[in-house]
């Protein structure tokens, strides 16, 4: 898997895809920061975070698409087929793509977020923020979750168009489920909270609400929710790759 990761990283560095998408991310970042600062960023960091759930939903959708496109182009140009023709194991091919593409996007986006939080905190003060490092780590887990799902969804369908599917999975599926919970959920607050913790939008709401303590259940749901969904898409990708439907 090591040499496949090297190959994947080399392709990312030297193909035009990374540059194009970093440029796109830069534009998105500038829009985000401008919106945040003009509409939201007058308050403390804690206030900024609690009012930014929609912005972060937008970011994770973009990150998912970014990771999906990075992998999708290798299938569109068919250069990814060399990994199959060389007799590499399916798990090595999949994990090398997840760790490189999703890992890279997660690191970059987390660094950018770190800088943004630092700037807001220094400019307007932190406000009442509990467990800031833990919230940062959980956000990084969510970023890795959405990016790796983008990669695995694309390897399942082996086409760049699957990036749209990865966007729909987050923006529609999570929203739909949470809407159903709100509509039909006359549960006690505790039960609905625990259900919401398993969905990314619910996780974001909880993590960004700095006045409420991060619970053990939220940490568990964030990490294991990622692992469970990763396992599902990993299995689907493996099944697809074993069927050898490369065009």
């Amino acid at each position: 898997m090591g040499r496949l990761m090297k190959a994947e990283w080399y392709r990312l560095k030297h193909s035009s895809e990374l540059m194009k998408w970093l440029f796109f991310v830069g534009i998105v970042g500038v829009v985000f920061v401008h919106y945040q600062i003009s509409d939201v960023g007058r308050g403390s960091l804690a206030q900024d975070l609690s009012e930014s759930v929609e912005s972060y939903i937008f970011i994770i959708c973009c990150l998912s698409i970014l990771s999906a496109v990075m992998i999708g182009t290798s299938y569109t140009s068919k250069i990814a087929y060399y990994e199959v023709m060389a007799g590499n194991k399916i798990w090595a091919i999949l994990l090398s793509k997840v760790f490189v593409s999703a890992g890279f996007v997660t690191v970059i986006s987390s660094l950018v977020l770190d800088i943004y939080w630092l700037v807001i905190g220094m400019r307007n003060g932190a406000g009442y923020v509990m467990q800031l490092p833990l919230r940062f780590i959980l956000l990084a887990v969510i970023f890795f979750h959405v990016c790796s799902m983008g990669v695995l969804i694309t390897t399942t369908f082996q086409h760049i168009a699957a990036s749209v599917l990865s966007y729909l999975r987050f923006i529609m599926f999570d929203s739909l489920v949470l809407f159903c919970i709100m509509l039909f959920g006359n549960f006690s607050g505790e039960i609905s909270t625990r259900i919401r913790d398993w969905f990314i939008i619910g996780q974001l709401s909880a993590i960004l609400n700095c006045e409420v303590r991060v619970t053990g259940h939220l940490i568990f749901a964030t990490v294991f929710g990622m692992l469970i969904e990763a396992a599902v898409w990993y299995v689907l990708s493996c099944v697809r790759m074993k069927r050898k439907l490369y065009q």
Binding site: R3, K6, Y10, R11, H14, S15, S74, Y82
Partner: peptide, 17 residues
């Protein structure tokens, strides 16, 4: 082939794979 890379870079990619 990856059209956005040079011949040498395509070969280097294969070398790693």
């Amino acid at each position: 082939l990856d059209g956005s890379m040079t011949a040498w870079q395509n070969m280097q990619y294969i070398r790693y794979v």
